[in-house]
């Protein structure tokens, strides 16, 4: 069998997904046997121009991680889509926008202000912020354009498979690779993960909750046996796709929601919100308000990984550039 051509790429990402590929440990050697790596910015040297030079659909498998935050992300996503037979959205950022997607609670200007100007630690006396084009005596310099809104990979190009997770668990990644190599392809659009929400595979005991207050994780020592939500700490398990092996809850950490919404969900955030708010243990509007306000950042909590694929996608835009 001819060796497969494999591309790995990162958009707006932290690099964790690449590391999870390396976390395949000795299986990574197998990848080396099975495939030629045609692109992998983290680990190999090929350039964009090498890819551009290829015939369309010459790459057998492209693992694309990271969200689409700027014009470079978009350009390469489109390029890799053209050149790849199978495009896999790897990790929560590619699948749902992920943590960078929370940038959608702000706009470009606010983000630039915060990153380059407003912080005490910014030593930026000339108040310089990145621009897509600058003219210097030597000529014109360009940078990718930073978008106002983060998108998931699927929102910009056609995607064949999804492997969620922040980072995606190596066993799911390997499962996907095996399926592709063996030609045993799942139906297009499949999410390589569980079908039900995480609670299904969570080993913790539950009785039906009554939320008396919202506590932060740092403020409690969680009982290891009992449902975390029942202990007053927000756990995203009820509205988050399972299949992760419930690693967080087994490590006594609440589910953060990295596997994203379950199949055909209306909206991960509002549905989780409703599930939790409905069980607030009070019938008194003022008390309810008080309990509610203990949750400092509902959007960041309920949409932690999925804001760009939520119903509203982002905060309202106020006609900004």
């Amino acid at each position: 069998m001819a060796k497969l051509k494999l591309a790995v790429y990162w958009g707006a990402a932290c690099g964790g997904c690449d590391v999870s590929i390396l976390d395949l440990h000795e299986k990574i050697l197998k990848i080396g046997e099975l495939a030629d790596i045609v692109l992998w910015p983290l680990a190999a040297d090929p350039k964009y121009s090498d890819i551009e030079a290829m015939e369309d659909k010459t790459i057998d498998l492209c693992l694309f991680n990271g969200a689409v935050r700027n014009s470079e992300n978009l350009e390469i996503a489109e390029l890799l889509r053209r050149k790849s037979k199978i495009l896999v959205s790897l990790g929560s950022c590619a699948c749902f926008g992920g943590i960078p997607g929370l940038g959608n609670l702000f706009n470009k200007k606010e983000i630039f202000n915060s990153v380059y100007l407003d912080r005490e630690f910014n030593a930026n006396e000339e108040q310089i912020v990145p621009k897509a084009k600058v003219t210097v005596p030597e000529g014109e310099l360009t940078l990718p354009e930073f978008y106002n809104t983060v998108s998931s990979l699927e929102q910009v190009v056609d995607v064949d498979y999804f492997i969620p997770g922040c980072p995606p668990p190596p066993d799911l990644l390997w499962k996907a690779i095996e399926a592709i190599v063996s030609g045993n392809l799942p139906p297009k659009g499949s999410v390589i993960a569980g079908d039900k929400a995480l609670c299904h595979e969570c080993p913790r005991k539950r009785e039906g909750r009554k939320v008396k207050e919202f506590k932060r994780l740092v403020d409690v020592i969680l009982d290891e046996e009992i449902c975390i939500l029942e202990q007053g700490v927000v756990c995203n398990g009820p509205a988050t796709r399972g299949g992760c092996g419930a690693r967080c809850v087994r490590a006594n950490i609440p589910c953060r929601g990295c596997f994203g919404p379950i199949e055909d969900a209306l909206d991960q955030g509002t549905q989780l919100l409703s599930a939790i708010a409905s069980t607030i243990d009070s019938d008194n509007p003022e008390e309810i308000k008080k309990i509610t306000d203990q949750l400092a950042d509902p959007a960041g909590t309920f949409y932690r990984f999925s804001l760009p694929v939520s119903m509203l996608k982002r905060r309202k835009e106020e006609g900004e550039e």
Partner: peptide
């Protein structure tokens, strides 16, 4: 007390909506 459940959801939803610029 179906309406009590709505009463419980309202403030949290309102907070979320405000974060979303509504």
């Amino acid at each position: 007390e179906g309406n009590v459940k709505t009463m419980r959801r309202e403030p949290l939803l309102a907070n979320l909506l405000e974060q979303l610029g509504i």
